[in-house]
């Protein structure tokens, strides 16, 4: 009985390592042809439209509401200590350092990456990738790389848009609704948010998330089983794996970036 358990464990470890090796080789293949996006910019622009522009609405609305909720909850706590003016810095720091990059990456995984996986998976299932390959056009360069690069470029932009919308939401609730002093709100924020430490590190985070989410979505799509079931389970895997990787990476990055500061 124990032996069977060990055997199953060993098999699953082998399978996982196999898949990781496959993913590593595939990622290298994608990254090495990603330069096509510079030569044929229109390919990248098209994918940025589908992943970036089409995520704009959900990102900005979510950002606005997250900022508004943060303002309400933050005010509740801060006013007990008589420091309601710190609301601006509380909201801005949470958004810029954590919520902006993380939540937009999670939303992006659900909104754009799942669609990319399904699209590539279906193209594989209907032999479109094979047809392209037979026409001497490398599908990795023509189809996969632009979709990956679109995630890398779009996600940081979406993250700053999310954070900005959040700050505006907090301003609306905190200043316009609750009545915190306008000047104190902004000046407290400016005093505590450092452009290089907070904003740039947040941006670096979202670039890393973009690489992770982008690679996962194209990998799962490219290696989906060529059936309806295969594509749908690949799409689910994209969302689950992307979300988990974003959260784990966020922890690792946060520890290495901000540990020395506080």
């Amino acid at each position: 009985m124990l032996l069977i358990g060990l055997e199953a464990l060993g098999a699953s470890i082998t399978r996982t390592l196999d898949r990781l090796g496959l993913a590593a080789r595939f990622s290298w293949g994608v990254v090495s042809v990603a330069g096509i996006c510079l030569v044929r910019f229109s390919l990248l622009v098209r994918e940025m439209y589908f992943s970036g522009v089409k995520s704009l609405a959900i990102i900005s609305v979510s950002g606005l509401f997250v900022g508004m909720v943060l303002a309400v909850q933050g005010y509740e706590v801060l006013q007990r200590f008589g420091s309601a003016e710190s609301l601006g810095s509380l909201v801005a720091l949470s958004l810029v350092r954590e919520l902006g990059p993380v939540v937009s990456a999670l939303l992006f995984a659900g909104r754009a990456s799942s669609a990319v996986t399904a699209e590539i998976g279906l193209m594989r299932a209907t032999e479109q990738l094979a047809a392209m390959d037979m026409m001497a056009v490398n599908p990795l360069a023509r189809i996969v790389a632009p979709r990956f690069m679109a995630a890398v470029v779009s996600l940081p932009l979406l993250a700053v848009i999310f954070s900005s919308a959040g700050v505006l939401g907090a301003y609306l609730v905190g200043v316009q609704l609750i009545g915190i002093d306008d000047g104190a709100f902004w000046s407290q924020m400016q005093a505590s948010v450092d452009f290089r430490v907070d904003v740039l590190n947040g941006l670096i985070k979202s670039v890393v998330f973009g690489v992770a989410v982008g690679l996962i979505s194209v990998f799962e799509g490219y290696h989906a089983a060529p059936t309806a079931e295969g594509v749908s389970s690949a799409t689910t895997r994209t969302v689950v794996t992307s979300s988990l990787s974003v959260l784990v990476l966020d922890f690792v990055l946060t520890v290495s970036m901000f540990r020395g500061l506080s």
């Binding site: 810029v96 700053v160 700050v167 400016q190 450092d194 452009f195 907070d198 904003v199």
Partner: peptide, 8 residues
């Protein structure tokens, strides 16, 4: 906006 209004 992040650089000038939110940050310093």
């Amino acid at each position: 906006f992040m650089a000038l209004r939110v940050g310093n």
